[in-house]
Design a protein around this nucleic acid. Sequence first.
DNA 1: GCCGGTCAAGGTCTT
DNA 2: AAGACCTTGACCGGC
Length: 296
Amino acid sequence: MKIGYPCINWGLTSRSNATFRLKSYTPEKFRDTVKINLHGLQDILAFNASHDLNFFRISSDLIPFASHPICEVDWIKEFKTELTTIGDYIRKHDFRISMHPSQFVLITAQSEKIVENSVRDLDWHCRLLDAFNLDLSAKVQIHVGAAYGDKSRALEKFIHNYHSLPSHIKQRLVIENDDRIFDLKDCLYLHAKIGIPIIFDNLHHACLHNDEPLIEAITAASKTWSTQDGILMADYSSQEPNARVGKHAQSIDEQAFTEYLQATRNLNFDVMLEIKDKEPSALKAYALMQKVRGKA
DNA sequence: GCCGGTCAAGGTCTT
DNA sequence: AAGACCTTGACCGGC
């Protein structure tokens, strides 16, 4: 079991999500920013290595405007040295890597334009992971998408559009159960149709489910991951007290996470902590994981 | 320096 | 009708 956190390390000055406004885009600004972000990513990965945080979600701001028509820089070619170095480092440390494109990526969209934009966005995420030379256990996760008031129609749209995706996207794309529209059961339906793996999000499941107990739900999700996909990825969060239902906690609830680890102790999977404070909670989670599960 | 309006893209739910 | 929220807060102009 690997423990990780998404995108940002608050304790380090290094960062990998610097961006800028579209109107201030110039090729030079783009190159400068990408350079900062790639070096920042190396620093963050070094921190992770020294703290046994072996799962990391790379920010979609790593390459700002990568899927926007304004960006004509061949960044994979220009930054080949940096990308190779980072990829080698990731493989050397056996890190698990994920990415999570934004809410604007909608495979279920009725507008072809939105689908095209979505595919372009997925394309660069997957090409980045390819440029790192990572195996197919490095994943790009999205929500199923918009329903437009007709879930079953949206699911069929997802299946239809999925079949049209290029293979370098299909082999990295995974879906996550969400807290409002498409629950685990819907994701399992898609998996049955197209074989796509499912990331299990416990907080979303708590918000929207069909009465499946946690262990049953997470086991079902884990079975959607083939050997080449690697073991299940799970997004973990707990509810922020006294806030809107579904809002992620500011810091980890250690008792709740311990209970989660105990309930799932017979299953091997990697945990992404979607907790607002980032690495402090991930470090606590790692300590709890060792306590509950031992070194494995 | 710091504050606040705004930021590529869409949809959904709340107020 | 407008704002909040979601992957992930952060940029940037004005003071």
